[in-house]
Write a protein that binds this DNA or RNA. Structure first.
Lengths: 146, 146
DNA sequence: TATTGTTATACTCTATAACTATA
DNA sequence: TATAGTTATAGAGTATAACAATA
């Protein structure tokens, strides 16, 4: 019988989580990339340049994603108050509503994944996971994908 | 200061792992979708229909992915021995070599993520992760994404 | 000179629908 | 009738390169 390794478990987690999120986004009429952009707008109006950095894609991409979100009524482009080259992307009222529901969904994820787990078990899990994430981050830096 | 929750940690893990894998695949001249297809071929020659089910995409997609992998010399199409409608996709020698190196990379991932961790800690982590994965799987079934 | 965002172009992944060959 | 895979068509995400406006 094929044994399940911790690495298998992690990969399975990634796969399931991706499917779950893609499903949620689709239900909201969003793609993953657009949902990601909306998520970044939590921090307030943002230039397209900053969005490109946050999403790790080219500025050209942001143009397309923002175009889509403008068409769907979730965001608007506004003039930057001091830099006339730059454009600020900001949430509309419906966009802010959607982001709120996304935030609620994110909070509920804690209950879905960990609800009812003993505090000690959850704490231990978090400690180990923290180490794993740190190792992975270090590896990316090593590989120059920092 | 913004507190890091276990859900944040999980999301960070997913994000980092995706970047790491995309980087590895790109280094091998593969996209994520093509790497996934190659991975499925571990189990031997496979019909395109079975690949479509495994990758959860439409048969039309498999045509495109296989076309790409044929062009890059990683796989070949072969006649199905008994069903003349079906096509078997099989690894070439270079494709098998690449898959071997992917398998090695997968095995090394254990060392990257968990190397040097005490057995007890790793075992506890695996137990909790198993529960979390089960919960997530149950949720997908509930949502009808089974 | 450097930066911001756009137009132009191209590639990949994805989907649906219609079709052919076969079962 | 149903299934396997293709052609046709379309939309979304991604990239590079060239460009205009502004810093």
């Amino acid at each position: 019988m094929p044994e399940t390794t911790p690495v298998d478990q992690v990969m399975e987690l990634v796969s399931l989580l991706q499917r779950d999120m893609a499903h949620s986004f689709a239900r909201d009429g969003l793609t993953e990339a657009r949902a990601h952009l909306l998520w970044v707008l939590q921090d307030g109006p943002t230039t397209q340049r900053a969005l490109a950095d946050a999403l790790r894609v080219t500025p050209r991409n942001i143009t397309g994603l923002v175009d889509g979100l403008v068409a769907s009524g979730h965001v608007v482009r506004r003039a930057h108050p001091t830099d006339r080259r730059a454009t600020l992307v900001d949430l509309t009222e419906p966009g802010a509503d959607l982001l709120r529901s996304m935030t609620e969904g994110y909070a509920e994820m804690h209950e879905v994944l960990f609800g009812g787990l003993p505090d000690r078990e959850l704490a231990a899990f978090g400690r180990t996971l923290g180490r794993v994430v740190d190792r992975l981050r270090a590896r990316l830096v090593e590989e120059g994908i920092g």
